[in-house]
């Protein structure tokens, strides 16, 4: 029997597979397909201080090997998430929860993270400084090392639970951003968020997305994610939650070999509602095949 358990800053996960924020709502929809307690953890929908409708439609465009989304952080707001969504999820789900927090100002990040931290239902605070689909917020915090440092430090000051900063790949040097997180006191890193992209409708001669640009996800971005995880693992001594185009148990192992302690699955959930469950069911089989007895032993194993 192989061992699949991993630990993120002391939070125990039975396996390293976590559905990524924004692809799993607050879990209820997937609970209609399978028992979501098989998951290592859940990263819930990105949350802001105020309720947000998000961007106008169309919000989705397909691409070769993936998709663009420009949902724009549609969410009911932190108060409702803490008072209603998380307790509702807890009625059907007992494993770790990552609250995913975004914001448009330093105050907003701090207030939302403090509220998420105070909820008895959360285990890790994932700070999203990397959403490419909101203007004057999200990614604009995550592309400047000084801003990232400030957000991390301010959030750490109000949180008792582990703080993981979710990084944008839309930067020249992800290592300098990762270092800024470490200096700000981050307990870990999540990478990568989506890559900013665009598609045009050649008949209408206009962008497909109403927001013009969107975030690229899906298997097309997997090699970019592996490369960035590799680089950050080499340079910064923090646990990494890897993500970006993961579709299979083999992808999970590849990302962990690059340096990830756990792995999030995003767009694959949308194409196949059973994606996470199938990866989890397959993981021990692939581990046996590759002669891996304990998955923890392969973290960063390719370096």
């Amino acid at each position: 029997m192989v061992k699949t358990a991993v630990s993120l800053s002391g939070i125990q996960l039975e396996n390293p597979v976590i559905p990524a924020s924004g692809t799993f709502g607050f879990g209820y929809e997937f609970a209609e397909w399978y028992d979501i307690n098989c998951l290592g953890a859940i990263s819930v929908k990105g949350t802001t201080r105020e309720p947000r409708f998000g961007n106008p439609a169309p919000r989705i465009a397909e691409t070769p090997g993936g998709m663009l989304n420009a949902v724009g952080l549609q969410n009911p707001g932190i108060d409702k998430v803490v008072a209603e969504e998380l307790p509702r999820l807890r009625q059907i789900y007992s494993k770790p929860i990552l609250a995913n927090i975004s914001g448009f100002s330093m105050d907003e990040f701090v207030e939302c993270c403090a509220k998420a931290d105070a909820s008895p239902h959360t285990n890790i605070i994932e700070v999203n400084v990397s959403c490419p689909n909101v203007h004057h917020g999200g990614m604009s915090f995550g592309t400047d090392p000084n801003m990232v440092y400030n957000v991390t430090k301010s959030v750490k000051a109000v949180c008792h639970k582990p703080v993981y900063v979710k990084l944008s790949p839309n930067v020249t040097d992800i290592v300098s951003i990762a270092k800024a997180c470490k200096e700000g006191g981050a307990d870990g890193l999540s990478l990568i968020n989506t890559l900013m992209g665009m598609r045009l409708d050649i008949k209408k001669r206009k962008p497909i997305l109403a927001n013009l640009t969107g975030g690229l996800s899906g298997p097309a971005v997997f090699p970019v994610a592996v490369r960035m995880i590799w680089q950050v693992y080499e340079a910064v001594n923090l646990p990494i939650i890897g993500m970006g185009g993961v579709q299979s148990a083999e992808d999970v192992i590849e990302m962990m070999l690059a340096g990830a302690t756990a792995v999030q699955v995003g767009a694959a959930n949308l194409a196949n509602p059973y994606a996470c469950k199938e990866i989890i069911d397959n993981l021990p089989i692939v581990m046996e095949r590759l002669g891996i007895q304990d998955i923890k032993e392969i973290i960063g194993g390719a370096h």
Binding site: G22, T23, F24, G25, E29, F30, E32, W33, K45, F53, G54, A57, P58, R59, I60, A61, M67, N69, V71, Q74, I208, N269, L270, A271, P273
Partner: peptide, 14 residues
């Protein structure tokens, strides 16, 4: 509407 998942998870068609 253009959809991502078709079952309510992604908020792509709100």
């Amino acid at each position: 509407e253009r959809m991502g998942c078709g079952f309510g998870a992604c908020m792509g068609c709100t």
